[in-house]
Amino acid sequence: MATTDLTADPLTIAGTEMRSRLLLGTGGFRSLDTLKVAIEASEAELVTVALRRIDPNARGSIVDVLDGAGVRLLPNTAGCFTARDAVLTAKLAREAFETDWVKLEVIGDERTLLPDAPALLEAAEELVDDGFTVLPYTNDDPILARRLEDVGCAAVMPLGSPIGSGMGLLNTYNLRLIRERASVPVILDAGVGTASDAALAMELGYDGVLCASAISRAEDPIAMAHAIRLGTEGGRLAYRAGRIPRRLYAQASTPEEGTAQF
């Protein structure tokens, strides 16, 4: 297999193959039209969606846009602060979208939006037992990631930095440990600010990147969707190509033999 052939290198989650390793979050897009074009530019095949109370003034249907784009829906439990609320929201999402896949979020703090680890684990276990394919948004904590895998999550999705912060990957040491010890797909979720962040995650061996704000709130969301797709693909190719080790001192790339003696 040619190492440059990305079509022969799919992302497989719970037995479902996807060619794209960039998962798109839909939050923050200024219009459904922009979202539609951004999905095309990102080439994402798995796209998040949320549930909220009916707003009679809302125009357009995001479900129609996503169905038209032919993408798989990944409902989230954003805004849930307890395991109970997250589990109920996941069940409502299963009813609304006819999918048992869920991006599980249980938030512990409004200011940081960091996950509540014990509640996340509790909700994950309950949803797995109920037949859900659970993709938990988790801390950059290798132990918690392993616990989530142990209870049957189909992937783990550690944050690079807080949601919407754009601070990139703050703890690459922990993120590497999570990658090395996981046997389910590992998706970098949250914190991506620009294309190089996605590339770095993929170079660490991550199986994919989930990104919303970096694209939706960019000055030019369509161009950024394209850029982050290329960053994701570039990082994946670089990971598979095998980078050179870091060295403290230089190593000449031009041979020293035959150097003129003046």
Partner: peptide, 10 residues
Amino acid sequence: IEVLRAIQGG
């Protein structure tokens, strides 16, 4: 009763 619908998010 909670009646929920799809919105952008995540």
